[in-house]
Design a binder for these strands. Structure first.
Lengths: 210, 210
DNA sequence: GTCTATACATTGATAGAC
DNA sequence: GTCTATCAATGTATAGAC
């Protein structure tokens, strides 16, 4: 019996198999997208048979959904950590840094997310309009209040946030392009990007002296 | 006979039909990606029958390839127009503006490209490593020389270019997310983004006075 | 040139032996 | 729990009438 909604007891072995499948599925979905991926690919990547995958999950879509749900919380966590009490420029630069680290350490998650958004976010549009929108509103208000107090230069907080998402996730989502362009210089990309973005956001946000 | 490699005479009518199909295919591929798209979808969008599509193109892949080839030149054109003789900050800001206009006016092309890169650029990797890499090297050298002359602040030219691509294409590729977050404020997104990016890149690039 | 009908391959999902 | 075998659906591409 496949573990549908009514999960009872799940043994350690079962949990490990499920992790193994989800990990393989993340590999496959993040590269090929939902429709481009096949259960066969996931099975092969996980070292299991096709029906065995479907013993642990009801359907291909069920695997995909579980991955997306797991993703969203972790993905938004760095934004949530903007502290109103810290030094504004440092807070934002450290947010940029955390996001860039995620692009480096969790590129598959970034691409899974990008794939979903690109195709119109059919499975997470409600989350975007709810959870993400609320969180962004909250953080935008913090940024706005910093601007009003003259602690950072006046900028549109939403587009500041968009630019941070874009510039950092770019290194995961467009990884192939980045490497094609940098070629032999690609090795130090993380440090280079980190330094560039730090420079850019400090220049953008640091208020004029006097 | 399908118009394979050996194209002879192509009438005006034929050219129009081909345009019609390519336009419909761009709609479909840009949303669903290559594998997610079906010939049936393209046919329906173009108001033609499925075999009729395959009368004008050898295969689904042939349509996709033609779209990608048409795309690349137009896509890289704004970068090519960076003039070494203009005012550096203005040149770069106007490049940003042109790219943002393209995200607004050609979002389908942007998403088609993004889809392809996300999946590892199987069909255009050689172009990226050749054409794109050379062009970027050339423009990076121009930016570097501006920095050496003190006309802009010293920044890593490659990561400056990456950030411009990322921030502008974000409005096409992540359009759904942008609209979900901005909600009722979304109407003026282009002007807001344009102003924010102008502010950011001026702050980043304008050298300190004195 | 355009259609209907169809061949053929892929793939999601199930049945049933072990 | 895991496998082989298989079904049903989907989708690419072709054949052949008109």
């Amino acid at each position: 019996m496949a573990r549908s909604g009514t999960t009872k007891k799940v043994t350690r072995i079962q949990r490990e198999k499920i992790e193994q499948i989800l990990n393989a599925a993340l590999d496959v979905f993040s590269i090929h997208g939902f429709r481009g991926a096949t259960i066969e690919m996931i099975a092969s990547q996980a070292g299991l048979s096709k029906p065995n995958i479907l013993y642990y999950f009801d359907s291909k879509e069920a695997i995909h959904t579980e991955l997306l749900e797991n993703l969203l919380d972790a993905w938004l966590d760095p934004l949530e950590k903007l502290s109103p009490d810290g030094d504004p420029v440092e807070e934002i630069c450290s947010y940029v840094h955390r996001k860039l680290e995620m692009a480096r350490d969790f590129p598959r998650e970034s691409r899974l997310f990008a794939n979903e958004i690109l195709q119109g976010a059919p499975r997470i549009l409600e989350d975007l309009k709810g959870q993400l929108r609320e969180l962004t509103d909250t953080e935008a208000k913090i940024i706005e209040s910093w601007a009003k107090q003259g602690k950072i230069r006046p900028v549109n907080p939403y587009h500041l946030i968009f630019s941070i998402w874009a510039t950092t996730q770019h290194y995961a989502d467009f990884d192939v392009q980045v490497h094609a362009v940098l070629a032999d210089r690609a090795d130090g990309w993380f440090e280079q990007a980190s330094q560039f973005l730090d420079t850019m956001y400090r220049a953008t946000l640091t208020p004029d002296k006097g």
